[in-house]
Each structure stands twice: as structure tokens, then as C-alpha cells.
Design a binder for these strands. Sequence first.
RNA 1: GGGCAUAUAGCUCAGUUGGUUAGAGCGCCACGUUGACAUCGUGGAGGUCGUUGGUUCGAGUCCAAUUGUGCCCACCA
Length: 888
Amino acid sequence: MSTNEMPKAYEPNDVENKWYPLWEDRGCFKGNPDSGKKPYSIVIPPPNVTGILTMGHVLNNTLQDILIRWRRMQGYEACWFPGTDHAGIATETRVDKQLRENEGHGRDHYGREEFVRRVWEWREQYGHTIIKQLRKLGTSCDWERERFTMDEGLNKAVMLVFVKLYEKGYIYRGRRMINWCPVSKTALSDEEVIYKEVHGYFYHFKYPLSDGSGHLVIATTRPETMLGDSAVAVNPADERYKDIIGKTIDLPLTSRKIPVIADEHADPLFGTGCVKITPAHDPNDFEVGLRHKLQVLNVMNADATMNEAAGEEFVGLDRFECREKIVKLMQDAKLVVKIEDHMHSVGYSERGDVPIEPRVSEQWFVDMKELAKPAISAVKSGEIKFYPDRWTKTYFHWMENIKDWCISRQIWWGHRIPAWYHKKTGKIFVGLEAPKDIENWVQDEDVLDTWFSSWLWPFSIMGWPEETKEQKFFYPTSDLVTGPDIIFFWVARMIMAGYEFKGALPFRNVYFTSIIRDETGRKLSKSLGNSPDPLDVIKTYGADALRFSIIYIAPLGMDIRYSNEKCEIGRNFANKLWNASRFRRMQGDIVPFDISSLKATDLSQDDKWMLGRLNQVVMSVNDSLENFRFHDAVHGLYEFVWGEFCDWYIEVSKENFFNKENTEKRNRGLGLFDHAMFTILKLLHPFMPFVTEELAHQLGYLADDANIMLAEFPKPLESAKLAELGISDELIKRVVAKFAIISAGRNLRVSCNIAPSLKIKYFIKPVDAGTEKFLQEQKSSLEMLLRAESLVIDANFAASGPAPSIVTDAGTIFMPLEGLVDVAAELAKLEKQKKELDSWIAGTKAKLSNERFVSKAPPKVIEDSKKLLAENEDKLCRVEDMIAALRR
RNA sequence: GGGCAUAUAGCUCAGUUGGUUAGAGCGCCACGUUGACAUCGUGGAGGUCGUUGGUUCGAGUCCAAUUGUGCCCACCA
């Protein structure tokens, strides 16, 4: 081995492209239900088949990959089930658009059967993009188990569920007011409506009474709907309008007379207290209409243009054109009282990005109330846990007020509703198979909401309704990682489906990810152009860097502020690992080493410190991951690897490594280094799969055909072993204090402008005999780290002249420089330190002499305070001595 | 209108059950190519924890009020 095999800087691209196919070929990702190990499973939130990888996917899938790799290394039979979602409306829109662009005709030109065929074709050609992209990120999904929500097996599951729920009476068909998207021309569920605060106008119109006795003033934000008005309502308790109830109105711009009715819906305190009632175009009015048996007059077409019922002069107008025209006509007729600016929230269609239109139509619904019950208690009892826990509140609120779910969609791409209508009798047939005498029946034209297949995902992906080994072994799944934006769409419904159809929870833990925003806090979106392409980022920084950085910057349960530059954190860190490994390679091949035969006498204090800290890190990484504290795990590792292992351990090791004479000692040092490095690589592997695999091989820790991703995840040493090796918190503290002396020595050098290359004399006056012995043993390493010409450790040291010095916990370090010392500056520095100590001591003394503190605070706290007080008093003495010496 | 979250260094965030006079990264300043690393090293400056009040021997950490910000739900004709 020679160093020129390892370039100075880590180049991730080749490494990543090399390992991924190898892992896949070697079957590293496979989940085997017969292994006899403990199961650990995750189902991917299926990305839309039309989708391309976004930063949101990166975060979400990195988290899942961390969990799955960690559990796999821990010895679980880990299986990550991947797949894609057919995304009904999105896909249909996409393919329709493409056909229009390429062939000049939209979907209607082709007819249902041909269009659906074209969508499948499209899916074959483009539908695997995101799956390929996920591989670039390093996700260790069991790709052989990839499923699509329109697969035959999943279709069977969907059909069966529909029939079962129909037979149970939970699914029904009804004429209801639903949310209608005029662009997609389909019904939507309540959850697919996005409310936006928009600026509009509040139009106050006069509605003349038919008997000529005057007029009422009504206010509306949607003048175009007046063409469909069926009544004007006033509150029955409203004295102002008592006498008008029962009269009729001549509805302007129409030839219709509509009644004035009394209904609680009218709020006497709002506006004029009179409200126009348009049963076909407003959900509240629809209810009023039902109560009063009013005519439901639909004045719009499916695309939200006005229909014949609106009147001749309005037919064909778009609803917004119609609005303007009506306002104009009302103004001409002097029926406009006023027009006010008005901010209000308007429901928009998620896909079409236009205001939805309330519309009365025949749709299929699921009555969710019974389904919700076990799903509520599962989360209440803690059988299913949410991380962060606060999402349970959102969940309960929705579940406890759950509404019927509108599941039919007037599109072609999706699972077709298994309902047939008899041509003559109109009878409804619902079943898995079409009726035998099919010639007498027509099938329902609608397809099911995409989520009606997604909610079965945790078991349909495992082959349900067939009884499969996979289900027996991997269901319920372990953890679910998803965004809180689909808690209702997906998470809640999966829980309901799990209990209803499998009789068991679908997953035990749900981790809700953060939302990714740009640096200025805006949501990432295509239209804002602030959405980086993860593949570009991977090319520039590496997949490991992207993965690591995004976890590193993800605050717990809050939004992430992302920018590409943040990936430098991960890139630099990968490079740091690379160079630490490069350094190791320069010291020669790996040597035989067995941690279990190690004795305390084999170890330097620095070794013990390093092993002790490494052990703490092992514990905390495992603990953090158990609690889904990814951020903590990553920060702990970063800090340890960079700030402790590289900054101190490698530096102190150099003395040993560069001295080739004591082979035994040197080899032991190399072995210890390798033990630590391999442990670090394993700990980091779930976060940075590629570079860790590469380095484990570069360093010779693994056979060519072995993989770090299948190595055992580090476990902490037993406390007996730690004690046996002389590793304790006390020892760790001592070594840290030694490092503090070195930092102080460097500080002295810089503050006196001593060239770093210049070797100088240092003196250390240790605090006590124990420390003196401890430091004395490590004199040569101290000399090296201080770049000292010489170092004297002497409890009785007294500077002969003015000597810059710094007082630390372990002792005082001096840098005597005859003639070069700026006495005033030194004094100022010491005075500052004295002042700080004085005030600290005064504060602590006051606290300790406070009777109530002494009587109420826990003994441990008091003891610690006293100990610190003594230490700091001692420190103060030393500082004062120094000041006196300088003044002499 | 209801709910959830959040407010800590110039920026982005840590800060576990209240207990040394608050930490990290980036940025900034100074110095530096010392036999892993300038995607680097060494040292340094910089916050009193949104505001007010309270509980407590002791509060960034608990409580109340208040202000700002973000999100969710409901509803406003």
C-alpha cells in the first residue's frame, strides 16, 4: 500500500457509483422472512410515479435508510419495501398534457381504454425515474419487492376492500355537495382542498321585493352565483325582517321570483342580516335548501363556465367573466349599494390551482366513524407512537371529527369502482366480478381516489389479501417516516385500514419529518425556482455529504432552512474521514490486534481517554436513534470524530507512530487506532453509507467480498471491562485538562506573536502532586503538541522575571520570554481573569452562606459547589501570585 | 375563532428531568503550508437567552400575561 493510492481529497462520485451496484448484486438489501432473526420493516411512502426526486424525498428517504441500515447492522432482518403511487389526477393530467403537445389531441380524443393504455405506456417509459434517483441517494430498499399501487395484486386488494366496506354498509352512494375541481373536472375530498387567504370584494346588492314595498340588501363575494339563488334567508328571531318572511323577491337579472325564508343560518349580526341562498353552489346553502325543500339550481358546467340555467346572456361565460358582467349589469340597474375590499379564504384545488367549486353530484362515500374508533384508541394507548408526540393532537382532532370520505373521481386513471347499474331497473350491483349477464349492466364510470389504494399500502405491498410469509413476518411494520402534511390523507387512514382489514396496527412508530425551506424560509417550489435538484447536489458534493448535511441541519421537529452551501458540512466531514484514513494508511498495513486481550498497562492515558469517549459516543448514537433523534446522533459523531479523534487523538498518536523503534508499542497504537476508526466507520455507516464502505476496505478492515453494511453495529463495552482498562470519567476529565494546558500554551504563543515555527521554552506548575506525576509521564507528547524546545514540569516553579502565563485547572503554564514581554498587557489579561474569578467566588460564597440554599438544595449540588469554590479559590491565589510577580 | 409550534451570538441551530457566570457550525478577525487534511490547522472577538410578571435557595430551562413569526383546523353569506 502506498499513499498515492489515496488522493488528498475525497472524490465521492466514483466511489458511490461503484458500491451501489455491488450491494445490490450481492443481495445486501434483501429481506428474508425465513431468516429466524427479529424482523424490522419499513414501507416507503410511495412517491408519485410522475415524481422526480426533491429535497423532501431526500430527507425522508435518508431518514428511512438510516433506520433500516442501523437495524440491519444491529442484527435485525431488515426490509424496506419500496414502490410508487399511481397518483390518479396528477398522472392523468401529465399524460393528457403530453398527448396534447406531441399528438395534438387530449384524452377525450382517444377514449377511455386507449387513454389508459397510453398512461401505462407512459409509466413504463418515465415512471421509474424517481426509483432510479433514489438509488443515487444510497437507499437500501429491497428492490425486488418494488410495487406500484396499480399492480394487479394491489388492484385486487382495493376491490376487495371496496366490496367489504360496501357490504358492511360503510360505503354508500349519494347525491351530495362535494368539492369540484373545474380543471380536472372531478370531485375531490375535503383534504384535497387548500385554503388560501386571498383578496376579493364584498358586493352589496339590492334585491327588490315583488310587492314593490322596497328591497332587501344582501352581500356576497360571488355575484355569479346569484343566478342560482333559490331564496333569501333572514334569521327568524330578527325583528327587522319579521314581516317580510314569506314575501317574494324579484331576483334581478332573471325572471324568477324567490321566497324570503326564515332560517337560523342567517346571522343577524353579520352584514345586513339577509343572506342569499344558492343551494347548488354553497355548502351551507345546500343544507338550508334541504331544510326548506328549495330548488337546487345548478348554473354552471363541469368546467365552471355558466350553463343554460344561468340565462341566455351568460351561457358559456367563465365564472369570473360572469362575475364581472353581473356586477356591471347590477351597477347599470342601480342595484349596487357598495363594493368593499374583502380578505377571505378561498378553497383551491391542489392540482389545478384554481378555486374549487362546490357542486352537487352523485358520488361514493365512506362513512369513517366506526373505522376511526380503534385507530383513535391505538394512538391513545400508545400502541402506536408519534414522534414528535405533539402530532397526536392534530390526529385526534381530525379523527374525532371525522367526516365521510368522498372516494369517487371522475377520471380514468385509477382503480375503477366495482359497481354496475342495471340498464332497466337501475339496481346497483357491487362485487369483485362483473355480473354474469353483463350485457344488461353498465359499470360505474368513476375511479377511486388514489388514497383509497395508498391506505392499504403496508399490507397490500406484502401481498394481501393472499396470506404470504412476508405478512406473517414483516407485518406490522416497525417505523413509518413521513411528512406531517399527509397525516390525514395517509397516516390516519392507514391506521384505520390496518385495524379494519388486518386486525392489527400497520406500524408501531411514526416519525414526522421537518419541512424543507430555502434560506429565507420560503417553501421549496418549482415555480419559485428555489428548489435545488438533488442529483446536481449529489454530483457536486456527494450523496453522503447531502445525507449527512441535511440531517445535521435538521432541527428537531421544526422546519429546515436549506441551501446547497450547507452541503459543505457533509463534504468536508467526509473529506476529514478520508484524510484521517489516509494518514493511517501512511503508517503501514493493518496489524493483528485484539481488543479483548488488551490490559490497562498496555494503554496510554490518551488511549484510555479516547476509548472512553468512543464508548460514550457508541452509547449515545444508539440511544439517539432509538428515540429518532437523528440530529443528535449526527452532531455527536461529528464532534467526536473531528474535535476529539482527529484534533487530539491523531495528534498525540503521532509521537508513537513516527517512532519506528518500539515496534510492539507502535503496533498496539496502530491496532487501537484501527479499532477506533472501524468503530467510527460503522457508527457512521447508516448516515454516510458510501464513504464508510470505501474506507473500511481501503484500510483493510474488511475482506473484499464483505460489506460494512452487514457488519455488526458497535455496542458499548461493559462497565467491568471499562474499569479493567482503567477508563473512568475521572480519567477522561484529567486528559481533557491536559489538553486545556496545551491550548493555553498555544494561546500564550499567539498572544505574544511568537512565530509558530519558533520552538520555545515552557514551564508548567501543576496544581498537585498527582497531576504532576500524570503530566510528567506525558512530557514528550506535551512537548510535541506545544512545539516546545523544552518543557519543565515543576510544582515549585517560580518565574525569575516577567513571564506570560495562563492558569488552568491542571496547573499554570508559563512562557518566560526575557525582554519580550509586554508587562502591561500581561497584567491586564491577569486582572481580567482575577476579576472574573472574584465575582464568581463572591457569588458562590453568597450562595453557600445562604441558609435556605444549604438546607434545600440537594447535597450533591452543595458538594459540587464547595469543591468548585475551593478549586477556583486556589486558581485565584495563583493568578494573584502571578500579578504580584509581574509587578515586582 | 380554535389548536400546535417557535422566539438563545451577524446567520442557522443545540441546550436532556431547573443546579458551575450559556454551547456548536457557518461567517468574522489574527497567524500559519509543522511528515492526513487550506474541503485544513492554531488562537481570538461576539449572546444574559423576545417582553413583563411570578414560582423557587436557584430559571434559557417551570407558570401566567404580552408581542412577533410559522403552520394546521374551522368559519365568515
